[in-house]
Design a protein around this nucleic acid. Sequence first.
DNA 1: GTCATATCTGTAAGCGCTTACATTTTCTTT
DNA 2: AAAGAAAATGTAAGCGCTTACAGATATGAC
Lengths: 348, 348
Amino acid sequence: MPTPPSQDNSVPTLEDVAKRASVSTATVSRCMNAPKMVSEKTRQKVMQAVRDLGYTPNFGARALAARRTGTFGAVIPTMDNAIFARGLQAFQHELGQAGITTLVASSSYNPETEEDQIRTLVARGAEALLLIGNDRTPAAHAFLRTQKIPFVNTWTIAERPDDFCVGFDNRRAMAMLCREVLALGHRRIGYITAQRTSNDRARARFFGVRDAMRAAGVDPATLRVEEVSYSIDEGRSAFVRLMDSSDPPTVVMCGNDVLAAGALLEARHRDLSVPEQVSVTGFDDIDISEIVFPALTTVHVPHKDMGVQAARVLRALCDGETPKIGGPLDTWVAWRHSLGPVARDGDR
Amino acid sequence: MPTPPSQDNSVPTLEDVAKRASVSTATVSRCMNAPKMVSEKTRQKVMQAVRDLGYTPNFGARALAARRTGTFGAVIPTMDNAIFARGLQAFQHELGQAGITTLVASSSYNPETEEDQIRTLVARGAEALLLIGNDRTPAAHAFLRTQKIPFVNTWTIAERPDDFCVGFDNRRAMAMLCREVLALGHRRIGYITAQRTSNDRARARFFGVRDAMRAAGVDPATLRVEEVSYSIDEGRSAFVRLMDSSDPPTVVMCGNDVLAAGALLEARHRDLSVPEQVSVTGFDDIDISEIVFPALTTVHVPHKDMGVQAARVLRALCDGETPKIGGPLDTWVAWRHSLGPVARDGDR
DNA sequence: GTCATATCTGTAAGCGCTTACATTTTCTTT
DNA sequence: AAAGAAAATGTAAGCGCTTACAGATATGAC
């Protein structure tokens, strides 16, 4: 009759298992990590002890001894909304296939916090990192370089020659959408953007709008810009300011879907019909863009692809291979109902 | 002139810092953990070395030696949507104040996965866990008990006498909403629920509907139930099935807001006006419930409170104190526009 | 100056695990 | 049946850190 699981208060260790199975710690370790090196009989015995004790290897100790962790990290700007969720999901899933766990941290769009989080994740054993965008404190960048931590920037295209990027051209994508907006006759354009400081995606999108305007012979200086932080409410109040001006825009373009949702919400509250009286556009094509009313015309972004490819790049990097970076990924305008031709004067 | 940072390929260790500052490793460790034990002069010297080297303590090693990690964990069913985001945010923030980091894992609504994740988080040093709901594999429960890991169940009320819970009464909350529905004259009720197996919240909500029906003298057997998995699309197709039946319901109640968003979306596609032709209700009051059209009448749930209180309970538990559990938290019906009186016959 | 006391710093023993290397056992081969 | 090869197991040295304890240095009272 086997001895009952030891009831002392600490969690069982490798040694406890070893004792119970009357083998050395090395053998137990092998059972867990390289079962084929152990004879069938011993393995049974050991596994039984593992089960009896409810043993789970201590991650820290294992990492310390083995000098690898099987962990990648991701630092995203926010978990508040679903923007990064889908991509991250794909990233995690792809890595999960390879037995790699993902640690996620968020930076609140703050470069200092991002730097902190990068250090924390590395200290916790992240062997490679997924990051969002190009903007980063020099210290963070230096840290990654000197510690030789492989990392990949997503949601963006390369700015520094040696960085690996898996993303798309925010500027071109937004310009493409703006071209459509202009083609529908809009000239008085309002633009709600997220904070552009230390957010290269927001900046790029903004420049994209101006690019398209200039190309269409519209003076970019006529663009009314509202810069707000990232929330539905902020999008809403920015929309208020835009529409309450003396000469309100006929279309409000938003730097992302969350802001656009806020704009749409306010439009509904004011009984402004969209797109008849005012058009609204978004960017990112997250879940809510189909749900809002009217469904949001936005820029579709390759969330999943980015996650999957980022995982592959990082894995290659960790294996010392040179990853194949395929250039910018595709985006396209997801036509739904919030963008229409400019209203004739007097409609309002 | 100080020596340049060593350029070898490995990350700097405590010992490297010690050497560079010409002190013992113990002193460096003290500088990082108990600065007041070290003289001002030495501290300066050490901190400079830390900065020069870009030293970050290895988390695993530290945890191993100090036998505590300053880490709590949370296992939530999904990160796909925003359901748990707000509460988690509050949880993390509350713990962050106390210098505790949070590790998050998701179980995909699968008890086996949850068990895995619990083990993983504990192995990674989680000293306490936030969990969702009461349903759990016996093994997971046993593990938590024998390893003496403090944990708190959220989004639910106690089922087992010794469990700590921070949540609300799903059953009563849903019954309360259903009472309103019935008061508006609805008798033909459709109900879209998430999978009820191993999801006590979903079950409780379902029972809540039946409770209210029974109390109102309506036979619960007349409730048409569609059980689907957790997504907008699934909500949508469940709504299709409900409405395409020979005698469609006048109100479709949904077990959560995501499902309701799907129902609403489909209603729009069919040009069914809500709530004139059919009413829809949700549960959870997440961000999207205000954004959908029409804005969703749903049950408001104390997301933030749960997060904050769960953090406090866990901290108390870790300090060996007995946490004060204040009983179920409040919920209420968030009246918006998707629920109205039953349509007179012939309206459809 | 001396000695007791308070502060600061160093020494060294682990924390729980992996793994190179040594040793024992088992299996072939002749 | 003996010898050699192959397979299984054990031994023990760390991985990078904390911390009890001891030793050194500074401070103050006399």
